[in-house]
Structure formats: C-alpha cells, structure tokens
C-alpha cells in the first residue's frame, strides 16, 4: 500500500533521548522518515519545516506543556497527532483528545500497537473534503445521499444514529470523545449527558455490526469515547 516515491514523514517530540532513539528505530522499520525534536518550541518549528505526515507528542516537555504544543499546532495544522505519555489519568487523555489529539497511548507501550494506531489515524486525514463516500470494510456511508449500507444491503438509521455514525466516520481511526460526539450531534448544551450516548451507540452497533462482520466496527475507549476503525 505504501508508495515508494513519497516516503512518510514522522515527527517525534519527546525530551527523553532513549524514547526518541527507540521510536526512530521502530518507525524506520515501518518505513517512516523520522525527525526528532527535544522541546515544544523545536517541535513546532519542525512541524513547519518538515511537514510531517504524523506527529508523536510527549506531554511532559521541558519548556512547555504538551497540551499547549497541541493547541498551537492545531491553530494551523491538521496533521494527525498521537500523544504518548506516562500520564494515565482519564482526565489527561480526554483533555488531550479534546484539544485535537487523534489518539492517546500511555507508556509503557508496545511498538506493534503504536504502529497500528499510527496507521489508523493517518488514514482519515487528507482527502476528507473530496470524498463523499466513506468506506471501511463492509460498511459504506454515502454522505451526499445519507445512505448507509453493509455488504451492499441498506441499513435504516434514525437521524440521531446517522449523525453519530457520520461524526465517527469523518474521524476515522481517531478516538472521538464523548463530549465531542455530544456537541456535534446534540449541541453544546448536552456536553454532560454522556449517559444518552450509550443508548444510541448500542442501537447503532446492533444495526451495523452484523453477524457476518465479526470484527467490531465501533470500538469503545472506556471512559473516553468511541473509535470507528474497520479492518482496512
């Protein structure tokens, strides 16, 4: 699938030299061209010059907080960002995701899992404007006609269910937080009503996760949100 001409560029922003070295080694075996940055400032500069396809960001940086780097980055860039941190509190994760991170991985981590996550978040990024049809595995969503099919068969969704699926599909591979979903589907005043979400999500799952398609299309990130990523 990787085209030989355009090598993928990854930017690692982490102050730990060992982690950087390790990530560089493991990402290079995955075929990435890896650039490193030790501080937040350096990282932001590198994000401008190197035009990375994906950024791996540590939250505990010496000069500024990782969340701050994320905010500044999101002012101008849509480059997928994976946050890699020792902080494992739920709140930290949600904050990072709400501030524009695409995924979150806590240290210690498995190299294989990192690679998989990077693949997932990279996919949805560039051509979201042009595509009017979304496809993952057996699931197909036609944004222009609001038609949803599984294995070519029509699935009937209510307006709310369709809205949920659309938000998840547009953020393919990315963890969409409860708050994000609620805001997109019900509006900002509903941000604290996460208990509704479960009910709708269950309905949606029942309709699109058919018996034949055993792989779970919609994954639950416990306490954080949901992620739509089919077998691609």
């Amino acid at each position: 699938m990787t085209e030989p001409a355009a090598q993928l560029v990854a930017l690692v922003i982490d102050d730990e030299v060992q982690i950087r070295r390790l990530l560089k080694l493991s990402l290079e075996t995955e075929g990435y061209l890896v650039f490193e940055a030790e501080t937040g400032q350096e990282g932001l500069r590198a994000a401008v010059y190197r035009r990375p396809d994906v950024i791996i960001l540590d939250l505990g940086l010496p000069d500024m907080d990782g969340t701050e780097v994320l905010k500044r980055l999101r002012e101008w860039s849509k480059t997928p960002v994976l946050v890699l941190s020792v902080r494992q509190e739920l709140e930290q994760k949600v904050t990072a995701l709400d501030n524009g991170a695409d995924d979150y991985l806590t240290k210690p981590f498995h190299a294989a899992e990192l690679a998989a996550r990077l693949r997932a978040i990279r996919r949805h990024s560039p051509p979201e404007t042009a595509d009017s049809v979304y496809q993952t595995g057996a699931l197909q969503v036609d944004y222009s006609t609001r038609r949803v099919t599984i294995h070519g068969r029509d699935v009937h969704l209510t307006a709310t269910e369709y809205a949920l699926l659309r938000v998840l599909a547009q953020n393919h591979g990315k963890v969409v937080t409860h708050r994000h979903l609620l805001r997109e589907v019900w509006g900002p005043q509903a941000e604290d009503q996460s208990q509704y979400l479960r009910v709708y999500m269950n309905h949606l799952r029942k309709k699109i996760e058919t018996a034949e398609d055993a792989s779970k299309l919609i994954q639950t990130e416990p306490g954080i949100g949901y992620r739509l990523s089919g077998s691609d």
Partner: peptide, 14 residues
C-alpha cells in the same frame, strides 16, 4: 521510573 521501563518494554517488543 516509568520512562526507562517504557524503553525496556518497547525495545523488547521490537
């Protein structure tokens, strides 16, 4: 403490 552990684990996996 966690950073070296992370390095060990990730390197082992690799």
């Amino acid at each position: 403490i966690k950073t070296p552990l992370a390095v060990i684990q990730a390197a082992t996996g690799e």
